[in-house]
Every structure is written in C-alpha cells, then in structure tokens.
C-alpha cells in the first residue's frame, strides 16, 4: 500500500491509467447520453422530465462516493501522515462538491415540474445540502492555516466527522417521511426500474467515475508541483529556517518524488 503511495510510483501509475480513463469516460458518456436523451423511453407519469434522472442520480452517487474517498484519504493522512493521502483528499473535494451541487440543481429542476416545488426541507434534500456544506467547509478549512499540515489535520477531522452524514443521505428516504422517492436501483431485491432506463444510468455513472479519475490525477499532479515549488522556495530562503519550523518535511517528501 505504501509502495503505491510514493509520489514517483503514483505519477507512473497515473500516466498509465490516464489514456484508459479518458477513453472509458468519452465512450461511456457518449453512449450513455445517446441512450438517456434519445433511445430511452419517456416515463408514463413523468414524461420527458425522467431524463433528468440520468444526470441527477449518477451525480448523487458521485457526491457520496467522492465524500467517502475523501474521508478515507483524510483518515490515512491523519494516521500515517502520508502526504499523498492528504493531496488526494484535497484534490477530491472540489470534484465531489461539483457533483453534489449538480445533484441539488438538477433535483430542483426535476422537482419544480413534478412535485410543484424547487425545494423542500425534507430529510433527503437537507442531508444532501449538508453534504455540499461539508465539502465547502473542508475546502475552506484546509486552506485556512499558514501551516498546511495543520490545515490538513483540521480538514481530515471534519471530513471524518462528516462521514456520519453519508448513511443519513442514503437511508433518509426510509427513515423519514419525505417527498423524495425511495431507492429504485441500489435496493434489496434488485433494481425496480426497466433495463432501458438502467443502462444510461449506469453508463453515465461510469463516465462520471472516469471523469473523477481524470480530474483527480490532474489535481494531484498540480498539488505535487506546488508543494515542490514551496519546498524549493524554502530551500532558497535557507535550510536552517525551514528546519526550525519543521517545514523541511514537505521538502524531503517532494524530493522523494524525483
């Protein structure tokens, strides 16, 4: 595990994965969008608004998936102090926040014509909004300290505490009376929706996952470069000053990436 967590190994692995991730993302999104917008039938009750589902539901899955990933990375960065785990958590946050925001916005655009309201303060919608705030809080917190290590600690702690919200989102439709419908795909007894609607749902979900991998790799590379820049700048100011403030740690770690 730690072997893969070395920046140099990660960069090699990332270069190998990148073309596959791009290929899978482009193909699944192209086919998924065709099925979602053209080939799949309109719902007998909801008409064509059901097509919003093919964005809304995969975006919701990604919002939760990214959050769990971010929290696991946060835990690894707290326990093993590994810089790459911290970098991966920081890189995941804006992607997860984007998907969560998309879920909320498309949900509103679906709710208005079908429920007659853009928003209700019920359990599912509120817990999803809290998920978005957890992402935004994490991003604000990790950047709130001059010492990035302290920022990581505070952010990871917030991400871990916020994990409690994930099962609340998932089971909110069962635990409380809500306007939101219960699960129809990931449920006991198998999916209850037609394959012609399941296919575009899964393909777009895979496409979104591929997109996540691509942007994650880009953002991790960006962050690795920026840490290297900071380390070099500190080296320029003077090694002794860096040592005094135990800021030499990122310098050594960045050096290991060569």
């Amino acid at each position: 595990m730690h072997r893969f967590a070395k920046p140099s190994v990660f960069l090699k692995l990332a270069s190998a994965i990148m073309p596959w991730a791009i290929g899978i993302t482009v193909v699944t999104l192209a086919v998924g969008l065709y099925l979602a917008l053209v080939a799949s039938p309109a719902d007998y009750q909801q008409g064509d608004t059901v097509r919003i589902m093919y964005i809304h539901v995969p975006a919701a899955w990604m919002g939760l998936f990214c959050y769990v990933g971010m929290a696991i990375c946060g835990a690894m960065s707290l326990i093993w102090k590994h810089p790459l785990a911290d970098i991966a958590a920081r890189a995941t946050a804006p992607i997860g926040a984007t998907f969560t925001a998309l879920c909320l916005i498309t949900g509103s655009l679906w709710g208005e014509p079908m429920w007659g309201t853009w928003w209700v303060w019920d359990a599912r919608l509120t817990s999803m909004l809290i998920l978005l705030f957890l992402y935004l809080g994490y991003m604000a917190l990790v950047n709130a300290f001059d010492d990035s290590e302290r920022g990581s600690k505070a952010g990871s702690a917030l991400a871990l505490v916020g994990v409690i919200n994930v099962p609340i989102v998932k089971f909110s439709v069962d635990w409380w009376n809500t306007l939101h419908q219960p699960a129809s795909v990931a449920r006991m007894g198998g999916p209850s929706i037609d394959p012609s609607m399941l296919w575009p749902l899964f393909l777009i979900a895979i496409g979104f996952t591929g997109y996540y991998v691509i942007v994650l790799i880009v953002r991790v590379r960006l962050e690795l470069n920026e840490r290297r820049i900071r380390a070099l700048q500190l080296g320029g100011v003077g090694q002794s000053v860096a040592d005094q403030h135990h800021l030499a740690v990122p310098a050594k770690q960045a050096g290991a990436g060569e």
Partner: peptide
Amino acid sequence: EMGGYAGYVWSSYGLATIAL
C-alpha cells in the same frame, strides 16, 4: 421540445456539461 419540459431537461444537461 422534450414533451414540453425542454427548459428543465436541457438546463439540467447544459449545467452539468458547463460545470464539469
């Protein structure tokens, strides 16, 4: 036209595309 729901459906897909 999306069965009269063009505004809702296309803005969902449009916003998703723009954001990503």
